[in-house]
Structure formats: structure tokens, C-alpha cells
């Protein structure tokens, strides 16, 4: 079963199309990365999926509920971390959490219990009675994440969850996100931190008004760049480029000082021939390893392709 399903979901603001015919299927228990530049329509998409604004056309179901006809059920089963934490500065940390928990229908006792749990989890317990106005950016972010989790939502929408957090706190949040996936929750992650998306996400969508690409991070890399190996040599790499390029299974080869980057169709099958050819050509090979382009490289390539298609 899918946690989120969109069919031709679109949203128009007067003459501007913010989201254009988005089709998505996100299985339960997935961490889904939603990547795109500023102004791509990511926030509008999240708002539609959280039943905060209505689509112009198309439909979507979130946590099994229709975003238009069952909007309140959608909101009850989703948690959202917005771009800004949006906390009440005059209230204490625990008052902020108890207030929101009660809005989600929890009794006072349940609300206090949940708030206590998350304040301890995020190491805010010692400062629970202090006004949030005096909290650091990282503390506020942690509190806002706690607020999104209070009612135990099936689907969680997180916008830049580790923004402003120190490395240890960011690691804790990433571990928490992984543990949420392990407990069967679905996470819709909007982020510009591509390393984070790469580490966390099972599925990644690259989006700019329209869906440009949707796949696993590994498949995105393979689709765009094929598979590759990096060969570290004891001598200069440039003289070997022509020899390697002549091999029939090599898609592309580049040299950088003592390193060759070679794109292949099937490294497991072709590597022995490649190594033999290099040795025969007089190369001293220090080591050879799979070469994986960063998600940033993949993203930038996809955005470029998206622009070309848009034009």
C-alpha cells in the first residue's frame, strides 16, 4: 500500500503554474526526498498533500485519505515541520508541545506524557519550563520536530529538518528519521542538503514545477552516468586514455593526474579485461574502486536536463 499517491496533481495561482501534473506513488515506510530549486513548487506540493490548500486539478491520497474530501483525516494523520519552526515564544517548551498535542485530540495527561517523551529524546527536558523565545535555532528546530511527531503521524513532512542544527544534533535527527522509517512511518523530506538526502532517502524526486525524475538514488546515478570505476595509478593517467577509450565496453573515460575515471556498462564483467589492458599498456595500478557520482552531480545534471526539456 502507498502512503502517498498523487494523480495529475496541479496547482495554479492565477496565471502561474506552481505544480504541474504531479504523479507520485510513495510506499509506506519510505523516506522520500523531494529535491528542487527555490520556487520550484515544493512548498505548494507539501501544502496540498497536508490538505492545507486545494489542488486546482488532480487528486491525491495521503495515509489512505483523500486530500480534498477527507482533509481533516489527512491532517490528523500527518505531521509537518515547516520551513520556520513557528513556535510560541512566550510559552515554554512543554507548553508549546502540550498545546499542539491537545489540538490533535490528545487528553491533557496523554499530551503531557508525549511532550515529556520527546523533550527527553531531544535533550530539552532540562529547559522544558523556559520560554521558547530564549532558545537557540537548533533547540527550536528540535522542538518543532518534536511537535510534528507528538500525535504519532503515519506520514511526516519535514522541510529542512537539520537546518541550523550542530553536527551531533543533525546526526541525532537523521538517526531519528531512520528509526521512524523502521517503525513503518513514511517521511516526505524536502531538503537542499543533498548529502543528507543521499544518506537517508529510499526514493528521490527531482522537481521543478513538473516531476523531472523519480527513482532510487542508485538508479538515478546509473541512469545518468552508467556505472564506473576509478583507477589510481603510480604514474600519469593521461597517456592511457586512448587505450582505455578503444575498449568496446567503455562509455567514457577522463583522466585527472594519476587517476582514471572510467564509465562502463557492466563493471563486474568488464573489469578483468580493463585491468589486463592497462597492465599490458604499462600502467602501474595502485588500486581500483567503484566510482559513484555524488547526488549533487546527479541533481545538477537532472536540473540541466529539466531546463533543456522546459525550453
Amino acid at each position: 500500500m502507498n502512503a502517498i499517491e498523487c494523480h495529475q496533481l496541479s496547482r495554479r495561482f492565477r496565471s502561474v503554474i506552481a505544480v504541474d501534473q504531479l504523479d507520485l506513488c510513495i510506499p509506506i515506510g519510505t523516506i522520500f526526498g523531494f529535491l528542487g530549486p527555490n520556487g520550484a513548487g515544493k512548498t505548494t506540493t507539501v501544502r496540498m498533500l497536508c490538505a492545507l490548500i486545494a489542488p486546482s486539478t488532480g487528486s491525491a491520497r495521503v495515509a489512505g485519505f483523500d486530500i480534498q474530501t477527507e482533509a481533516e483525516a489527512v491532517r490528523a494523520n500527518t505531521g509537518i515541520l515547516t520551513e520556520t519552526p513557528g513556535l510560541y515564544d512566550a510559552l515554554s517548551a512543554i507548553e508549546n508541545l502540550v498545546f499542539f498535542a491537545r489540538l490533535y485530540g490528545l487528553s491533557r495527561d496523554q499530551a503531557t506524557e508525549r511532550a515529556t517523551f520527546y523533550l527527553r529524546l531531544f535533550e530539552l527536558w532540562e529547559r522544558r519550563n523556559e520560554p521558547v523565545g530564549g532558545f537557540s535555532k537548533g533547540m527550536r528546530q528540535k522542538l518543532a520536530i518534536a511537535r510534528a511527531l507528538l500525535h504519532d503521524p503515519a506520514v511526516l513532512f519535514l522541510d529542512e529538518p537539520t537546518s541550523g542544527l550542530d553536527p551531533a544534533a543533525a546526526r541525532a535527527v537523521r538517526d531519528l528519521i531512520k528509526s521512524l522509517r523502521a517503525s513503518g512511518r513514511t517521511i516526505f523530506l524536502t531538503t537542499h542538503n543533498l548529502a543528507e538526502a543521499d544518506e537517508l532517502c529510499d526514493l528521490i524526486a527531482v522537481f521543478r514545477t513538473r516531476l523531472i525524475s523519480l527513482d532510487t538514488p542508485a538508479n538515478l546515478r546509473t541512469r545518468l552516468f552508467g556505472r564506473g570505476v576509478r583507477v589510481m595509478l603510480a604514474g600519469p593517467a593521461a597517456p592511457l586514455v586512448a587505450t582505455v577509450q578503444a575498449l568496446p565496453f567503455v562509455i567514457d573515460v577522463t583522466a585527472d593526474e594519476q587517476t582514471l575515471f572510467i564509465r562502463l556498462t557492466d563493471p563486474e564483467h568488464d573489469n578483468p579485461v580493463l585491468v589486463r589492458t592497462l597492465v599490458n599498456a604499462g600502467a602501474d595500478i595502485r588500486y581500483l574502486e567503484p566510482f559513484t557520482p555524488s547526488l549533487e552531480t546527479v541533481y545538477l545534471e537532472l536540473m540541466q536536463e529539466g531546463s533543456a526539456i522546459g525550453k
Binding site: R75, T82, L103
Partner: peptide, 14 residues
């Protein structure tokens, strides 16, 4: 101003 309306509106209240 404090941008607290969006989390509030995301709650299951009318």
C-alpha cells in the same frame, strides 16, 4: 508575523 499560523492550520481543527 511569528509564522505560527501554518503549524496551527496543519492541525486537525476546523
Amino acid at each position: 508575523n511569528r509564522r505560527t499560523l501554518e503549524p496551527l492550520l496543519a492541525a486537525p481543527i476546523t
